[in-house]
């Protein structure tokens, strides 16, 4: 494994009854990163989490978490990870407190230490008042928060979150996203986030991988992926007096590959990002008064669909 990678996967393969559902998946994740794992239903996100967390053995390939081999040291792997499972995995007949206490015991906590940790987590996730209630009576959002508390019980350096906001209303989803941001920013935790919510990935993740049919079809920061897909750079220029002479001047510049005007906005296509300052200089030189220059970015959604389209 690479020294600096907290999670490392090399050619992971998993088959169920001869059917390959994870197909030569490789990636590396650095400390403190929130790594988004995007893909449609059945793409293999959950299975990948199970392979990386040492509960399901890969058919081929290997993976390391904090340097521990998921094949030969699964117990060590499980000690350093926390997992938010896709389904809540809470005991509905037990109270919130009893649920946390059970897992706390399994992480070796007892007595006062255990109680303090439980209270701390319940407080952090706003569940203090419901601590004695049976989890069966909880709303989906409360269950998610309690599951997250459970995943964090032993303060693991690595977190796997399998669709943390699915089934939540916007407010509940926001609450969870804020928690995730906090966990990563302030505590330097490495987070592996499975989602099919692209906005969420964009908001939270420094890098993403797109998985489809068990195969990784793209990997990188959203910006990198965008650059790969749209080689040309497009900028939107806001000019004081965009008269015909000025527009003609711009269009005829050597660096400008294309220009269009859309709702009184000027969109200019350039060969590369390096041409942006050149363009600005030329316009200013010509006497143009620039209010703003913005590089046009594509939403992760556009990127996602474009990549899936291209790989078909």
């Amino acid at each position: 494994m690479t020294e600096t990678n907290v999670i490392d996967a090399k050619n992971l393969v998993r088959e169920f009854n001869g059917k390959r559902v994870i197909n030569r998946v490789s990636f590396g994740i650095k400390e403190g990163e929130i790594f988004g794992f995007l893909g449609p239903n059945g793409a293999g996100k959950t299975t990948t989490v199970r392979l990386l967390s040492g509960v399901l053995a890969p058919t081929e390939g290997s993976a390391w978490v904090m340097g521990y081999d998921v094949r030969s040291e699964p117990l060590e792997v499980r000690k350093v990870i926390g997992v938010l499972t896709e389904t809540s995995s809470l005991y509905e007949r037990l109270s919130a407190k009893e649920n946390l206490a059970f897992f706390g015991h399994l992480y070796g906590l007892d007595g006062e230490m255990l109680n303090n940790r439980i209270n701390e987590l319940l407080q952090f996730f706003g569940l203090q008042e419901k601590s004695m209630d049976k989890v069966g009576t909880f709303s989906t959002g409360m269950k998610k928060r309690l599951s997250l508390a459970r995943a964090l019980f032993h303060d693991p350096p690595v977190l796997f979150l399998d669709e943390p906001t699915s089934g939540l209303d916007p407010e509940g989803a926001r609450l969870i996203r804020n928690h995730i941001n906090e966990l990563s920013k302030e505590e330097k935790r490495t987070i592996f986030l499975c989602t099919h919510n692209l906005e969420e990935a964009k908001e939270l993740c420094s890098r993403v991988a797109i998985i489809d049919n068990g195969k990784i079809i793209a990997i990188g920061s959203p910006e990198d992926l965008e650059r790969d897909l749209w080689q040309k750079t497009e900028v939107e220029v806001n000019l004081d007096e965009a008269n015909n002479e000025m527009l003609k001047f711009i269009r005829e510049l050597e660096i400008v590959m294309n220009m269009r005007i859309d709702k009184e906005k000027i969109f200019i296509e350039l060969g590369s990002q390096n041409d942006i300052p050149v363009l600005v200089e030329e316009i200013v030189h010509k006497g143009g008064r620039i209010f703003s220059v913005n590089q046009v970015s594509h939403s992760l959604e556009e990127i996602y669909f474009r990549i899936r389209e291209e790989k078909k």
Partner: peptide, 14 residues
């Protein structure tokens, strides 16, 4: 069946 076992499987128990 209740799918609660998954979280238990992720704990550092043998």
């Amino acid at each position: 069946e209740r799918k609660t076992i998954e979280a238990l499987l992720y704990t550092p128990t043998t």
